[in-house]
Design a protein around this nucleic acid. Structure first.
Length: 411
RNA sequence: CGGGGCAUGGUGUAAUGGUAGCACGAGUCCUUUGGGAGGAUUUAGUUCCAGUUCGAGUCUGGAUGCCCCGACCA
């Protein structure tokens, strides 16, 4: 991608309302733009990040044996009446009326939808287990929106639902999903801790949250450094000593980036979704649901991967792999840079090529702000030795690499 | 939903009730190019509706929007 053609234009100043560092950098680097309170537009750079994360998650879900589907945003009121969640307003639904005054809602979660699909076509024990997931926008009528992408009213979410014929099978899968979540978050450059949580309004007997320690986090988590026990303060209250080993607990602010629930038979019972076992007896299947909020994930990645100059994208979620910068806009330098641009692209490396006539300092500052993992500088000075300068965004020192060996060096 | 705050070009800011100005950005042209360059030129603003006043960005009332704190959440 030629930066001269890139729709996103870096800015020197952030909107004055942006307090969270992730909000400031994402806005300044022009990844996102606010449209209204709690609603954000993803511009081309931001969208590329979203797509990268989506693909990491999708691959892991498929690895788990889950099948992807796509459910409607419009939710049937009757389904929500069945589970008695329509009136409780929990999770906070956006209720709307059509022109015939018929009520419907925008999806805030999809347990009702998925259970309805399930009960219409699963009748036998032979169909278990079943795993279905989607990556789709959720709408939540929260009391308040805050922190840029941290808490918004419309956000992209991966939601996975599992159906089981035995508790044992559910627990086994539940643990598998937890492992898979750790893999996903690691690829996103995050090191979350898994904590016991209260299930809140989604319901169920058991749930775990994935928490990333961060000062702007809204959750308070108690961690035992001795035995590794960790729990949301919401679940266990303000206790001082570890319930497992009696050591002193440490209090941490955390961002919740994922949540897994053992729902038991809450939804299958409420919606009368039954199946027949071997002996022809009716049973309610057990359910699990597992969510990751992608907008918050983007914000959390930036919150925990930046320096005073800008974002430092983890490799796998960066909008491009390489930021190629030409210093001095003359025929020789341009020819050198264009050659590298073509070579790298041929190798399947995604390159953002700064071909603009801006000053070197300005280009470097913008490159640091945008935060691609690798920066390659081409100038008269480097070309004199048939070299280009290669620098990691998260390192101070740069290396001179022969232009001919660049592609090989990077692969 | 309760409490607090703010509202001026795209962004950040100024203007005793009396000419809406500055900087950055953006556009065009020229000169520049190793850490946010210079010149020329162009562009664009008082959230909305009432009221007070000879005169309102400024005062009053209302609406709307946005931010922060609490409860809620991925």
């Amino acid at each position: 991608m030629l930066q001269s053609k890139l729709f996103c234009k870096a800015k020197k100043t952030a909107p004055k309302d942006a307090e969270a560092i992730s909000h400031q950098y994402l806005a300044r680097a022009d990844f996102i733009e606010q449209s209204m309170s709690g609603v954000y537009r993803f511009l081309p750079l931001g969208f590329r990040v979203l797509k990268k994360i989506e693909e990491i998650i999708r691959r892991e879900m498929i690895e788990l044996g889950a099948q992807e589907l796509y459910l409607p945003v419009f939710q049937n009121k009757n389904l929500w009446l069945e589970t008695k969640r329509w009136e409780t307003f929990d999770p906070p639904l956006f209720k709307i009326k059509d022109r015939h005054q018929k009520e419907t809602a925008l999806g805030s979660t999809h347990e009702e939808e998925i259970t309805d699909i399930f009960r219409k076509r699963i009748k036998s024990y032979q169909d278990f287990p079943l795993y279905l997931f989607q990556i789709q926008n959720k709408f939540r009528n929260e009391m308040r929106f805050s922190g840029g992408l941290m808490r918004v009213r419309e956000f992209l979410m991966k939601d996975l639902y599992s159906f089981h014929s035995s508790e044992e099978d559910l627990i086994k899968f539940y643990e598998k999903v937890k492992k898979s979540y750790f893999k996903i978050f690691k690829k996103c450059g995050l090191k979350p801790i898994c904590v016991e949580a209260s299930s809140g309004t989604i319901g169920g007997d058991l749930s775990h949250e994935f928490m990333v320690p961060c000062s702007i986090g809204e959750d308070r988590v108690l961690i035992c450094k001795n035995c590794g026990f960790a729990a949301n303060i919401e679940k266990i209250g303000e206790i001082k000593d570890c319930p497992k080993c009696k050591s002193q607990l440490e209090k941490n602010s955390c961002i919740e980036i994922g949540h897994v629930f053992n729902l038991g038979t809450k939804y299958t019972k409420a919606m009368n979704a039954e199946y027949l076992d071997k002996s022809g007896k009716n049973h309610f299947p057990l359910m699990g649901c597992y969510g990751i909020g992608l907008h918050r994930l983007v914000a959390t990645i930036v919150e925990t991967n930046h320096d005073e100059k800008g974002i430092i994208w983890p490799e796998q979620v960066a909008p491009f792999d390489v930021h190629l910068i030409q210093v001095e806009d003359n025929a020789k330098v341009r020819k050198g840079a264009e050659g590298i641009y073509r070579d790298l692209q041929k190798k399947g490396i995604e390159v953002l090529y700064d071909d603009r006539g801006k000053s070197a300092g300005e280009k470097f500052a913008e490159a640091d702000l945008i935060g691609l993992p690798l920066r390659i500088v081409v100038s008269e000075r480097t070309l004199k030795n048939n070299c280009a300068e290669v620098k990691n965004r998260n390192k101070k020192e740069a290396k001179m690499i022969k232009v001919k060996e660049l592609a090989k060096f990077l692969c």
